[in-house]
């Protein structure tokens, strides 16, 4: 049975030094719920990419007091991870250009790969704009 008691939440300032806290929180969440362990790498990766994206975006808009929130919830068919930030509207699924992964090394752009990994690694993902901000819902399961 799915143990809903394993649901965990984290909210903290969108500051670069908090990346390590986020990694530790994901590791602890997976350690507390066995079926999640196999997805730990993917969860850390996708959340790192989203978090660094928020930091870059808030640097551009000079908003220094942003916050991010994470929710880890066991589901019957895997793990649901919700990543939210209270910044200006940004949908990383539709607004990010697809990097050209066929380009020759001289032409290959430095960057742009992070959001490609966000789109490819989870089994499912969706974007919502809520009252609080941007919300990405990520599902990790063995289905795909």
């Amino acid at each position: 049975m799915v143990d809903m008691a394993k649901k965990r939440q984290l909210e903290l300032p969108a500051k670069a030094e908090n990346l390590e806290k986020i990694f530790d929180w994901i590791e602890a969440s997976c350690a507390a719920y066995d079926p999640a362990k196999q997805f730990m790498f993917g969860m850390q990766l996708v959340v790192e990419e989203l978090f660094l994206n928020v930091l870059n975006h808030s640097a551009e808009t000079a908003s220094a007091d942003g916050r991010v929130s994470l929710t880890f919830s066991p589901q019957p068919n895997g793990i649901m991870l919700v990543f939210s930030d209270d910044g200006s509207p940004f949908d990383p699924l539709s607004e990010a250009p697809e990097p050209d992964t066929d380009a020759a090394i001289e032409d290959r752009k430095i960057g742009g790969l992070g959001l490609k990994l966000v789109r490819e690694i989870p089994s499912q993902l969706s974007y919502n704009r809520t009252d609080w901000g941007n919300q990405l819902t990520l599902i990790f399961n063995e289905g795909e």
């Binding site: 790498f41 850390q44 990766l45 790192e48 990419e49 660094l52 090394i105 001289e106 290959r108 430095i110 960057g111 790969l113 992070g114 990994l117």
Partner: peptide, 21 residues
């Protein structure tokens, strides 16, 4: 290496470009 994110990929690409050049 147990983990590489896009920040790591970027660094590998920077180095690879130098060798290629």
């Amino acid at each position: 290496v147990s983990y590489v994110s896009s920040a790591g990929l970027r660094a590998i690409l920077v180095i690879a470009k130098r060798f290629s050049k």
